[in-house]
Design a protein around this nucleic acid. Sequence first.
DNA 1: GGAAAGCGTAACCTACTGGTTACGCGTCAG
DNA 2: CTGACGCGTAACCAGTAGGTTACGCTTTCC
Lengths: 117, 117
Amino acid sequence: MAGAIADPVRREILVMLRDRRLSAGEIAERFDISRPAVSRHLRVLRNSGLVRDELVGRRRLYALDAGAFAELAEWLAPFVQPSGWERRLDALETEIYRTRREHRARGAAGQAKENTA
Amino acid sequence: MAGAIADPVRREILVMLRDRRLSAGEIAERFDISRPAVSRHLRVLRNSGLVRDELVGRRRLYALDAGAFAELAEWLAPFVQPSGWERRLDALETEIYRTRREHRARGAAGQAKENTA
DNA sequence: GGAAAGCGTAACCTACTGGTTACGCGTCAG
DNA sequence: CTGACGCGTAACCAGTAGGTTACGCTTTCC
């Protein structure tokens, strides 16, 4: 399911559906890609459960399915605002590593370069 | 960035890092795939900003970056608990479509099959 | 100083993804 | 009934993602 929101086109479709329910054609005409391409994106969204579809005459209306998004949010929740526990454990672990190292090499200063800030 | 959480291996790495900070090797040995493969997953996570890395001696420690997750959560937020607005608009739109249709065809009953429940 | 440890990168191959055009099927309009 | 509309599917193709093995660089240990 997480793979469904990986594609930018699909994410934009989801944003569009946030406002109102839309037919396949209405969705497709807002993109520069062909209609079948959009149709397949819609199928992926359908299979992922992020979207529900309803046949109305010869049109097919798409709407968001809140349930799937709730699942996503549920997965994401533990990652936002780390509980503070980990930071302490990290510090402890680093300390262990450093003391073990400095047990021998006395002259080497403790250096650690931060990346990907 | 959303593409980074599409892969199941990367998601599992993130879960692992939720508890404590880990070195590349510690991460790699928990998977059946080769170490270089894990290394590239880590690069993807690094480039996506979901993970920060710090060089400690000859090891490279990885830790979650809360900022990126906050962004994700921010994007996801508008999708959980729809505001109620859309449902009303949907109902209205459906009504318009039906009345226009039934203006001519009197006998046809309003039918709409739900899919992908 | 030299061997080993810890990681990343390069080159390569396969599998999937996402795009296209051509087509088929059901529904509405006249 | 027949033509147009709306939409999905099939077949095909190029680009990317993710796996592997081989290799190189930096840091630690003796």
